[in-house]
């Protein structure tokens, strides 16, 4: 057989994780990107740097701190236990939470760029025509930033699919729960199952290529739209 059951299980898990993380980050990342694009606060610089940290931080460092925070004695751990959810490490939702932090800049930065490219004027026009800020956001900013949302979603999805270090730190290697595709490849190599590793690696390679191809094809067009006004 081309792929084993556990390979397919790992791929499905990876896709599920990437979809949930992209969805969560669309909701969480949009207001953050909006604030970064429009705020004149002094906190904007430091806050932007914190958001960008996962770009430069070794995933193991991020994973380590998240593990401590989610652990039974960490602040997140206390909270989840008080809510009756239990400890998050080595669970799917623990992985989602960690991935949200890890992929945050991949959602926020393209959105921030898109919002900045739109500028204040279309929103000012909308408010002088009687639209509240929220109304103007949904009826003007959101449609104009659509190319940015597309880029951000693709980047976030792809980045989540490709993560490894954070997963190992937080999720370990629980089949069907936290064993994602990249970990599965690692296991195959450890077990000297090179043929299996090759197949999984080739799928990841083709997937990554297609994502970049899609971005290259969609983005020039996308950015033209954002600047059209």
């Amino acid at each position: 057989m081309f792929l084993t059951d556990s390979d397919i299980q790992a791929i499905w898990l990876t896709i599920r994780l990437a979809m949930v993380v992209t969805f969560v980050l669309l909701i969480v990342g949009t207001p953050i990107a909006w604030w970064l694009a429009h705020s004149k606060s002094r906190l904007k610089g430091p806050f932007g740097a914190v958001i960008a940290l996962p770009l430069v931080l070794p995933p193991s460092v991020l994973g380590f701190y998240l593990l401590l925070a989610m652990g039974p004695n960490g602040p997140v751990g206390h909270l989840t236990r008080a809510l009756g959810i239990g400890a998050l490490p080595f669970t799917f939702w623990g992985l989602v939470l960690a991935s949200v932090f890890y992929s945050l800049p991949f959602m926020v930065q393209p959105l921030q760029n898109a919002f900045e490219a739109i500028g204040d004027r279309p929103l000012e026009v909308a408010t002088t025509l009687g639209a509240s800020r929220l109304d103007a956001f949904f009826t003007v900013a959101l449609p104009l930033a659509r190319p940015g949302f597309l880029t951000a979603s693709i980047m976030t999805f792809a980045h989540t699919v490709g993560e490894f270090g954070v997963v190992l730190m937080i999720g370990g290697n629980v089949p069907g729960v936290t064993r994602v595709a990249s970990v599965q490849i690692y296991d195959h190599v450890e077990a000297l199952e090179y043929a299996q590793a090759h197949r999984m690696a080739a799928i990841m390679l083709i997937f990554s290529f297609l994502v970049l191809l899609a971005l290259n094809v969609l983005r020039p067009d996308a950015f033209k739209m954002a600047r059209r006004d």
Partner: peptide, 15 residues
Amino acid sequence: ERRRIAMVFQQPSLF
């Protein structure tokens, strides 16, 4: 949005 003062700018700034 509650002042009811509409504006036309130098650039049309259409949606």
